[in-house]
Design a protein around this nucleic acid. Sequence first.
DNA 1: AATCGACGTGAAAAAATCGTTAAATCCCTA
DNA 2: TAGGGATTTAACGATTTTTTCACGTCGATT
Lengths: 228, 228
Amino acid sequence: MRILVIEDDPDILANVLDYLQSRGYVVDCARDGLSGLHLAATGNYDLIVLDVILPGADGYQVCKRLREDTHTNIPIIMVTARDSLDDRLKGLQIGADDYLVKPFALAELAARVEAVLRRSRGGGGRVLKVADLILDLDKLHVSRAGVPIKLNPSCLKLLTLLMQKSPAVVPRETLEEALWGDNFPDSDNLRAHIHLLRQAIDKPFAVPLLHTLHGLGYCLTENFRHAG
Amino acid sequence: MRILVIEDDPDILANVLDYLQSRGYVVDCARDGLSGLHLAATGNYDLIVLDVILPGADGYQVCKRLREDTHTNIPIIMVTARDSLDDRLKGLQIGADDYLVKPFALAELAARVEAVLRRSRGGGGRVLKVADLILDLDKLHVSRAGVPIKLNPSCLKLLTLLMQKSPAVVPRETLEEALWGDNFPDSDNLRAHIHLLRQAIDKPFAVPLLHTLHGLGYCLTENFRHAG
DNA sequence: AATCGACGTGAAAAAATCGTTAAATCCCTA
DNA sequence: TAGGGATTTAACGATTTTTTCACGTCGATT
């Protein structure tokens, strides 16, 4: 992760640089608004820590020009001693992702850096994984051993639940309620769906993942040892 | 935009509710941790404002369980009177997107809500891009492979949402709510709009970007791998 | 071993979803 | 008030999903 720190106070700059580097980030710095703008536009950073009080162009101008002129959406955390409400509002409305008031603890800066980065990288990637079976909860895409698998909505719901609970056993009633709520269909329909799910995720592969515990429920796991 | 406010103090709750509603958000609320957790898991919200001091499960527990158990990445803004450094760090590290200390100005809450929403949808830039399809949110201008495309307002709304969420799958209900709010028209009208959108952005080009996932929703993406 | 209930399998019927088209209605402006 | 674009409604066929059902298998209990 590459971070650009734009700050004119040499003491603060040195502290921030050291701390962020110690946390494993690659950090560059600029001491005034214009060189900061230039670096930001060319340097391919993942996040910018931006002081408001700067020689040259101030932080608001830097932020505004980054958003409007260069059309970048690099996350920006503004940092400043100015803590009036209007200042904070201005910073946030102009396109900053967060606004931190000096003096601040370096640990808090790092925590906010991580929070913003987490969000800017697509929210953390909501994926479930059991053995070589992967379910992407956003794309609703399933694959096993790299092979894409097509599932209908019911099977997808079942698989989601089973993967979330894995390696626990999920009772029939839980699965039925997930599919139909309170009033299930007349026939014992879950069997058919489980069958479809098995066809899709287990049949084409060597080791089955979906196991039946007679009278108890179903369980999705790799290391399944039958009691015997 | 749907927001869930989890807060037990009735005065603060009323203020926050009124203010956010006046800004055009659809707001629900919960007064304790458990019902908040339940609403959050089922209610399809775009953001959660979460008080730390709560009866039932406290805010940290709610946040943690949302991130770990239910695997949601709904943006969370924590709000609390506890402003010690450790409290703030805990909130951010546990998966909150922002941490706001009481007492706060409603305007600042709204600004931070918007900053977080901006980031959580498509990244804050005013230009959305999916493959060679480009949407300028300021000029409301759409083009693909350099060719300008004219869209009516409905299709524009649909495309905006789909691009913001890309490459995630957007369920029908989300699209319908974006177009009509709570009371959609009688007939299944989304199909017609999707058709129009396809005519505009896909038909004149070689590779389609808008894909249907039967029973699940629609997905705008370039690399769409569907199992045979 | 016999039996009963729970489970697996496959096929076919029923229902839901979807793409497409055309006509009707609404809304704004000239 | 007429015209044009936007939106809504309706209908059709095609496809997919869900449900139902019949029958065979397995496991536990007697």
